[in-house]
Simulated assay, not measured.
Amino acid sequence: MNSAEPVFRRADDADAAEVADVWLRSFTAALPTVRRAHGDDEVREWFSSVVVPQYETWVAVAEGFVIGLLVLDGEELEQLYLDPSWRGRGVGDRFVDLAKQQRPDGLGLWTFQVNGSARRFYERHGFTAVEYTDGLRNEEHEPDVRYTWRPDEVALPISSHTRKL
């Protein structure tokens, strides 16, 4: 296996600091106009005391470092962030596939309306925008959009041959 090929696994407590750092770098790079509701130390504490121990947290690890994270809570895709240097390399696609495997009945998520790249990414993966808000319900007070994904209904194949009775 190429050493740069990411390995996907469940996060453990020892990953929390790196997970928080990836989140901080990714949020800063992807959302420069969005006011963060919490400082760096608060974010690190939240990941170490809440997210990693209490939620289904997955990491992508390459060359010994966490390069991405996925957090699931019930049917919610709560977090999907990649180190900026790993964007566009298929890691996010693999995380979405993993989330769909873990939640085959469907997923929901929120993203900020201003995050055009995330919105295009989720739409490419079959998520549909179902609600737009003014942002008053999120800590950043940033307009957001709700997406949902439901697996395609199984279509019965139509036979090109018909039998006469």
Rank of each mutant, 00 (worst) to 15 (best):
Val22His: 13
Val22Glu: 09
Val22Asp: 04
Trp23Lys: 00
Trp23Asn: 10
Leu24Phe: 06
Leu24Pro: 05
Arg25Tyr: 07
Ser26Leu: 00
Ser26Tyr: 04
Phe27His: 14
Phe27Tyr: 15
Thr28Glu: 15
Thr28Tyr: 07
Thr28Ile: 09
Thr28Trp: 08
Ala29His: 02
Ala30Asp: 14
Ala30His: 03
Ala30Thr: 13
Ala30Tyr: 00
Ala30Arg: 06
Pro32Glu: 05
Pro32Ile: 09
Pro32Ser: 08
Thr33Val: 08
Val34Thr: 06
Val34Cys: 01
Arg35Thr: 13
Arg36Pro: 01
Arg36Met: 06
Arg36Ala: 07
Arg36His: 01
Arg36Glu: 02
Ala37Gln: 10
Ala37Phe: 11
Ala37Ile: 12
His38Gln: 15
Gly39Thr: 04
Asp40Thr: 14
Asp40His: 03
Asp41Tyr: 00
Asp41His: 08
Asp41Lys: 05
Glu42Val: 00
Glu42Tyr: 03
Glu42Arg: 02
Val43Lys: 00
Arg44Gln: 05
Arg44Ala: 05
Glu45Ile: 05
Glu45Lys: 04
Glu45Val: 06
Trp46Leu: 14
Trp46Cys: 06
Trp46Pro: 06
Phe47Thr: 05
Phe47Glu: 01
Phe47Trp: 15
Ser48Asn: 12
Ser49Ile: 11
Ser49Val: 12
Ser49Pro: 07
Ser49Thr: 15
Val50Cys: 07
Val50Asn: 02
Val51Ser: 10
Val52Leu: 09
Pro53Leu: 11
Pro53Phe: 09
